[in-house]
């Protein structure tokens, strides 16, 4: 069994949080409050020192006496204007920095998403259905390409709402739903795997690091 104080705290906190699965109780509430409080404090400190001190303050007034970056004043002013939201009277001023952030972010993201998540994806979808390998047909890759093509077309048809989903059109849309459901199922499977991994990690901590039962 571990003799480290930190390990004991972490182990008891883990048990405290798991105790909610039995029913809500004061031990869980204490652990929850400690977790939220310490997380908030941690993030506040990290962001204060990383952004306000290191980037803004030391950017404007470099510690080595060099000339500061005047552009940072713009950011500082916008940041202060954001705080106007706290007042009912001048809260409307906060819309200016918000609109600046929304506009600048949208502009920056637009190209990135268009290139990486749209054009490149479309290009990789528009491949030859028959894949050849060393003169012969690579059947595995060919079947994969056909499945992708069918899934893309039927999926797009499912989201085409200008025509009623009846007849052959409705049939293809139904195939699209099946592909979507399989995708959601696979995604859910991965999520289950991820959550189970977290639980395994905690159990390994309790039985291994804390109780020393697993070597």
């Amino acid at each position: 069994m571990s003799t480290e104080f930190g390990v004991w705290v972490a182990a008891l906190m883990t048990i405290g949080l798991f105790s909610f699965l039995y029913k809500d109780n004061p031990f869980f509430k204490v652990c929850e409050a400690v977790f939220i409080g310490s997380s908030t404090g941690y993030w506040a400190v990290v962001y204060f020192f990383d952004n306000l001190q290191k980037k803004l303050w030391e950017g404007i007034f470099p510690p080595d006496g060099a000339v500061g970056d005047a552009w940072l004043w713009g950011g500082a002013i916008l940041g202060i204007l954001m705080l106007c939201r706290l007042s009912n009277k001048i809260g409307w001023i906060a819309r200016w920095p918000v609109s600046f952030i929304v506009g600048a972010t949208a502009g920056l993201y637009m190209i990135n998403y268009f290139v990486s998540s749209a054009m490149m994806q479309v290009a990789s979808t528009m491949q030859s259905l028959v894949v050849t390998n060393g003169g012969g047909i690579d059947w595995q890759a060919t079947i994969g390409s056909v499945v992708v093509a069918v899934a893309v077309v039927s999926g797009l048809i499912y989201f085409f709402f200008s025509k009623e989903h009846t007849g052959a059109f409705g049939g293809v849309a139904k195939v699209g739903i099946w592909f979507l459901m399989i995708t959601f199922g696979a995604s859910f499977g991965y999520t289950v795997m991820s959550r189970m991994s977290l639980l395994i990690g905690r159990m390994d901590y309790l039985f291994g690091d804390w109780l020393g039962m697993i070597r």
């Binding site: 990486s116 994806q121 991820s194």
Partner: peptide, 17 residues
């Protein structure tokens, strides 16, 4: 990637990114 995130990255894998 974590398992939750992996399905979102598969399209980029297929595209060779």
């Amino acid at each position: 990637n974590t398992a939750v995130q992996a399905p979102q990255v598969y399209p980029y894998l297929r595209a060779g990114q």
